[in-house]
Design a protein around this nucleic acid. Sequence first.
DNA 1: CGTTAGCACTCTGGCTTGTCGAGTGCTAAC
DNA 2: GTTAGCACTCGACAAGCCAGAGTGCTAACG
Lengths: 351, 351
Amino acid sequence: MELGERKQRILSAVIDVFIRTGEPVGSKALVGLLENSVSSATIRNDMAELAAMGYLEQPHTSAGRIPTAAAFRLYIDRLMKRNELSDEDRRGIDGILTHAADDPEKLIGKASQALAEETGCVAVTTTPTGKTADIRMIDVLRVSPHSAALLLMSGSGLLRTRVCRFDREVGDKTLEMLSQHLNQSFCGCSLSEIGLPQIQSMVVSLGEHGLLCAPALNAFYQLVQESAEAEVSLTGQLNLLHHPDYDHERARDLLSFLARRELLTSLLTAMPKGLRVVIGSESHRPELDGSSIIVTRYNLGGGPDGSIGIIGPLRMNYATAIPRIEYFARSIGKILDEIMGENNARNTDEE
Amino acid sequence: MELGERKQRILSAVIDVFIRTGEPVGSKALVGLLENSVSSATIRNDMAELAAMGYLEQPHTSAGRIPTAAAFRLYIDRLMKRNELSDEDRRGIDGILTHAADDPEKLIGKASQALAEETGCVAVTTTPTGKTADIRMIDVLRVSPHSAALLLMSGSGLLRTRVCRFDREVGDKTLEMLSQHLNQSFCGCSLSEIGLPQIQSMVVSLGEHGLLCAPALNAFYQLVQESAEAEVSLTGQLNLLHHPDYDHERARDLLSFLARRELLTSLLTAMPKGLRVVIGSESHRPELDGSSIIVTRYNLGGGPDGSIGIIGPLRMNYATAIPRIEYFARSIGKILDEIMGENNARNTDEE
DNA sequence: CGTTAGCACTCTGGCTTGTCGAGTGCTAAC
DNA sequence: GTTAGCACTCGACAAGCCAGAGTGCTAACG
């Protein structure tokens, strides 16, 4: 069902005003805002029809109208004019990212922080990892006579360490042997390939050292598990507490939901590629009613990638937030590729 | 000025009830609770005097009394009966800590989480580091043709890594040389000794590789800085949002304050050794009015140590929280010593 | 037929009012 | 020093009221 041109303009205007003020908008307020303005009565008629079509609703009889989730959907897909970033904005972001940008984790942390600050929402990121990432190297470092640290570097540029304790003192040779075996067996493997059986077979191949090294192998297994699944991190939760749309309960409930990382992970990893906007109840999660999620992927040259996005109130400023998130994702992908030295025809000559 | 024995009992009872209910407590409510009960009129008289002495105050004329900060101070220092942990509690904590206890960071994370959950407050911990910690080892790991990761292990058992990018490709020899020089120069040094001058002099001693390695040295410097200062982490912020004593504003303000880590760090590091309770305004931070902090240090055998504690409403359950925190601190210290292999006459034969 | 002006209607939010109950302070008796 | 009794104060809560905003409908207009 096609919407008349004026109705589209009215709906757009309602959404714009609502995003700005957060209050139901009445017919009179729109009179001054439309291009070829018509009288408030006409607008009322159109609004009544828009309400009948499910795009507007009124909290109570004599209040203005507020846009429904369907209206936001239409707005984002068709009506909205993207508010592209100014050169200044870009420079600002570039500055933030290139400043402490050598380290992947730092980079993503900074990006998350900046995004949260600029949008006033909660920023959500996942580490650049995935089942497809492979193991680049493994190292074993002595910590004390009877404990050592394992280090794992994955193809996505992440380093993870973990200390383990042996049942008795271990010699340098044992550690060295352990390191060699681990590297031989697992270097180049994708993280998802490695399961308990493979690791248990190491106990055998290590011969006399096998049993002694069991704690280390156990730690290694945990390390692999940990690296294989995307690690979600949130920034700017405080922003929610400052936002007028979130009262105590709503903020608490949303944050409680976000604290359950496993739910969030599954939500994010289930997203198809490209930029996605999930509006309120579209996620079928009651906790997300009244909130929107905008996420996209940042791609490394190869397989592994991660997500970056924001979570905030339904009436967030999509027009500026969306281009901003896209820019962040592109920049992160580019910088990570540079760090990791992927040779995929990107100009790495900048700076 | 000494308090009469009955007044002490009355004050204790008021505090106990207030901690339980959070509401002003009246004279009648106390009649049934005191040992050698007296009439409500007598209690009223005593309460009036306690109010005059600054231990009680009433929100308005015809409400019950609530304890002042001074009352809590007295309560904690003299009146309170510590509610020692049951064997079961201890076993529970031991189980949590020994379960994933090989890794120092994991250990402290788990402890923090458990403490937050058990007390319903925000748990605060600092990593076991300090100016006095020394550098145990440094490693340089190749990440890509033109980037590498630096790894630093400090005497407190913490591993920190950071990736850095070189201006052009670097050979294995260069990295190896860098690693050797860094270890020779800085292994065994305390973290606080290392400043920019020492690192800059490395550029010279590295000879032809000096300039190429500048980014790595810069990253190393940042790594040292980072490891030198205690890293504060909070767990269970959501608890505040569930607590009836914190409405939207109070929760927001407290969390905003806690988010400013530098303030928190200075607050924690300024604490003298031993267990401390800071009640509301005693910290001279307006944001902490109405909240209390309980912290203590956990000590490693050697110099470095960290803090663990909780932050919550004034009317928290001090009698059970304090022994609990002490137990956590002792356990963490013991386990870390075991991991790090300090030989200080502790029985490491458990389990 | 689409647009406009006018009007009666509805509903919310804020304000005032009145009542209830908890708790106190004081006084006088024990 | 302790207790009983009583008048008083104050906040919480419900009920009632008013003003304002915004609508839906109808009738007139081009």
